[in-house]
Design a protein around this nucleic acid. Structure first.
Length: 424
RNA sequence: GCGGUCGUAGCUCAAUUGGUUAGAGCGCCGGUUUGUGGUACCGGAGGUUGCGGGUUCAAUCCCCGUCGAUCGCCCCA
């Protein structure tokens, strides 16, 4: 047992009901992003380390300790993608996608971060991602947020999740506010927790979401960004809120919600639930007008979000699994008819399966255990062709469904000859 | 990186203050019964108690380490 291979820490084998939830989240996302005109984009799962290192700037902890980086055989430093945005930005620059701007893109897939696992936090995890590149208008922010809100609604979890919204303003706003916040906390340095004294040097804005009770008192009368907004930044935030309101989206103003990296501008938002403990952010995003320019591309405004598939999957209701029609040959000599029936059913769009082994009785038992919707017994009619007996197993396997089955057998009729349909 | 809790059949869990051949349900395999079929009964397989070391006459239980899981902190792109 101990010699058997064990999956690496923080990875998961997703199966059964959990896999069905996972799948449901992705399917819903794919459907909705189509409704909003977001095209699918595929970018590499690994990139040159510099792609992520640059987008993360000098956040040394993140770059040095929390990325899966290694040297390939050519001696190049490679990193497993810890986020989508940097790779998409790289692709945008490299392929000259500015010709397509404004470009609406969607992606989903695995991401990797070398972190201590917690509830809803893994080393290989999966995210949905939606980005609008090359649009400076607040309408783009409205649209990506609307997509996120719609997704939560379709997943049936909108009631558990709150949209927290803030603005970082433009660069002038941000630097003025940031400096004021730093000055405020510096003036009360001795009252800050040890962690926050460290933040004061590394990233003062992060003190705003400290969990320390003592810090919170100081945070309460920290300078507010609203007092530093330039006319332009204020107008942008105003337009965003008007757009959201007109779209029927509700939100909570979160004046202390921030992004540490300074290429973020204007909108910052997170959809948060309290149903998942400390890892309550289910979708997070914002506008990152400074990123593409910083990575060496043309100055390009952009806005987007990413959502944790695992976290979303934990919140969705149990999807109904199964629902197959089990085809059972009453006797071995009916197997050929059963194969034919199964084939026809599938080509007519019915989900169905035949058991691999066991006699008819056993197959019935297993079909029931597996949650089949109905059992279709294939028999031999007195005239020699196949005869069928339908046994519904679930309440919603109703008359319409039975009629469809009748139509199926009618189709078989022309192929096989004499057919009789027996229903109970 | 730091701290708390946890780790016993395939799964969910038991096992009196450390005490003899570590149990049950479900699942799995086989049989009987039933017979348009989810039944009931009988039997069977399956564990070096995560792994390694220590204390003890004796360890699932106590101690140390390690690997995982879980909850929180740090971090959060």
């Amino acid at each position: 047992m101990s010699k058997a291979p064990q999956r690496p820490r923080g990875t998961q084998d997703i199966f059964g009901e959990a896999a069905a939830r996972f799948d449901h989240v992705i399917a819903t996302f794919n459907r909705l992003r189509g409704l909003y005109g977001f095209g699918r984009v595929e970018v590499p799962v690994f990139e040159a380390t510099s792609v992520f290192a640059r987008s993360l700037g000098e956040t040394t902890d993140v770059v040095s300790k929390e990325m899966y980086s290694f040297e390939d055989r050519g001696g190049e430093s490679i990193t497993l993608r810890p986020e989508f945005t940097a790779g998409i930005a790289r692709a945008y620059i490299e392929n000259g996608w500015q010709q397509h701007a404004p470009l609406k893109l969607a992606a989903w897939g695995p991401l990797f971060r070398y972190e201590r696992p917690q509830k809803g936090r893994f080393r290989q995890f999966h995210q949905l991602d939606a980005e609008v590149l090359g649009a400076a208008e607040p309408a783009a922010d409205v649209e990506v947020i609307a997509l996120a809100a719609h997704l939560l609604d379709e997943l049936g979890i909108a009631g558990d999740v709150t949209l927290h919204l803030n603005t970082m303003g433009d660069p002038a706003t941000r630097s003025a506010w940031s400096a004021a916040v730093a000055a405020h906390f510096a003036a009360h340095r001795d009252a800050l927790s040890a962690d926050s004294q460290r933040r004061l040097v590394a990233n003062p804005l992060r003190i705003l979401d400290s969990k320390d009770d003592g810090d919170r008192a100081l945070v309460a009368d920290a300078p507010r960004i609203d007092d530093f907004l330039t006319a332009e930044a204020g107008a942008f935030f105003e337009a965003l809120q008007k757009g959201l309101q007109a779209s029927g989206i509700t939100w909570e103003r979160a004046p202390r919600l921030v992004r540490g990296l300074d290429y973020y501008r204007h909108s910052v938002f997170e959809f948060i639930t309290d149903a998942l403990g400390a890892q309550g952010t289910v979708i997070g995003g914002g506008r990152y007008d400074g990123l593409i320019g910083m990575m060496g591309g043309p100055e390009t405004p952009a806005v987007g979000w990413a959502g944790g598939i695992e976290r979303l999957a934990m919140l969705v209701a149990e999807p109904k699994i199964g629902g197959l029609v089990a085809v059972v040959a009453d006797r071995p000599e009916n197997e050929a008819f059963a194969y034919l029936t199964t084939d026809r059913l599938r080509k007519l769009g019915w989900a169905c399966e035949m058991a691999y082994r066991g006699n008819a009785k056993r197959q019935v038992e297993l079909a029931k255990k597996r949650g089949a919707m109905a059992i279709l017994f294939v028999r031999t009619a007195e005239e020699g062709g196949p005869a069928f007996h339908v046994q519904p197993l679930v309440p919603f396997f109703d008359e319409a469904t039975l009629r469809s089955a009748a139509r199926l057998t009618a189709g078989l009729d022309s192929m096989v000859g004499a057919v009789s349909l027996a229903t109970s």
